[in-house]
């Protein structure tokens, strides 16, 4: 399925600054593979130190997270804490 993707502004090197793109995959991992085909190098950018927000939920390790139709996937830098 095709989902909408938003990249936080620090992750847009491989897309030449484009924020909103589309990709397909049944999981976030598969989606990243697809995005990497479209924008070479984006896979490496998104595979480490990056979380996603889907339906308002922050997910820190999203590789196998299932994607449903119509969702928008926001890629954001991983946060930390004390």
């Amino acid at each position: 399925m095709t989902v909408r993707v938003h990249l936080s502004s620090n992750l847009r090197g491989p897309t030449d600054g484009i924020a909103d793109i589309k990709g397909s995959g049944t999981t976030v991992g598969a989606l990243i593979d697809d995005l990497d085909h479209q924008y070479p190098g984006l896979g490496d950018t998104l595979r480490s130190g990056v979380s996603v927000v889907i339906d308002g939920l922050l997910i820190a390790h999203p590789q196998y997270h299932q994607l449903n139709d119509g969702v928008q996937v926001f890629f954001v830098p991983q946060s930390a804490g004390g």
Partner: peptide, 9 residues
């Protein structure tokens, strides 16, 4: 929108 681009819950 957060600085990171996603809508805040």
């Amino acid at each position: 929108l957060s600085t990171m681009g996603f809508p805040l819950a």
